[in-house]
Computed example of a mutant assay.
Amino acid sequence: MERNLTMVAMFAALIAVLGLIPPITLAFGVPITAQSLGVMLAGTVLGAKRGGLAALLFLGLTLLGLPLLSGGRGGLGVLASPTVGFALGFPVAAFATGFITERLSRLPVGLAAGAGAILGGIGVLYLCGITGMSLVLGRSWGEAALLVTAFIPGDLIKAVLAGMLTLMLYRARPRSVLSRA
């Protein structure tokens, strides 16, 4: 139990620390950040439940006002910004990433983690993010989806990195990759 709490807190902190890397803000108000890599890693390393909890802890602290989102944003104002779907989607994406990674246990670790990161950390996160952007920006879901295409190359790189980092961690300390436990 104590180990699980520590891991959840550490990955919530990892998501926050990745927000310190300066964002590149696109014209429609959504920044390209490294935080989605932390969300992917939470799922690939911790698995569905613990990964989702790590991202949920991060989100809760952010909504309480801590400036943990990239660019030092936090508080309830996040719920009125174009990034609302992405922020609220972090726990869902981390859970989905972990769920997929766990279900692909017959595949090599790196491949399972990469696939989980693509399907959960990109696919699920984009569904949430596009929906939020559509609502806040007053655009159709299709129009919002077109805006998000600028993120795809970078997010694919992050998904490959998540797979590689999970594999490296698994090789170094197999018991620390809880998605394989």
Rank of each mutant, 00 (worst) to 15 (best):
P31F: 09
I32P: 14
I32F: 10
I32N: 12
T33P: 05
T33S: 14
A34P: 09
A34D: 04
A34Q: 07
A34T: 12
Q35S: 11
L37S: 07
L37E: 02
L37K: 03
V39M: 09
V39F: 00
V39C: 14
L41T: 02
L41I: 15
G43V: 07
T44P: 00
T44C: 02
V45S: 04
V45P: 02
L46V: 10
L46A: 08
G47Y: 09
A48L: 05
A48F: 10
R50A: 11
R50M: 15
G52F: 06
G52K: 01
L53K: 07
L53A: 14
A54V: 05
A55M: 06
A55I: 01
A55F: 00
A55R: 05
L56K: 04
L57Q: 07
L59K: 02
L59V: 13
L59W: 08
L59I: 07
G60C: 09
L61D: 02
L61K: 10
L61W: 06
T62C: 01
T62M: 13
T62Q: 04
L63M: 09
L64T: 15
G65R: 02
G65E: 13
L66C: 06
L68F: 08
L69S: 01
L69E: 11
G71K: 06
G71N: 06
G71E: 05
G71Q: 10
G72I: 12
G72R: 13
G74C: 02
G75P: 05
G75R: 09
G75N: 12
L76E: 12
L76P: 13
L76K: 07
G77T: 14
G77I: 06
V78R: 03
L79Q: 13
A80H: 15
P82C: 05
V84D: 08
G85N: 02
G85S: 01
F86N: 11
F86A: 12
F86K: 04
A87N: 14
L88Y: 10
L88E: 01
G89H: 01
F90N: 04
P91Q: 11
A94V: 06
F95Q: 00
A96C: 11
T97P: 00
T97H: 07
F99L: 15
F99Y: 15
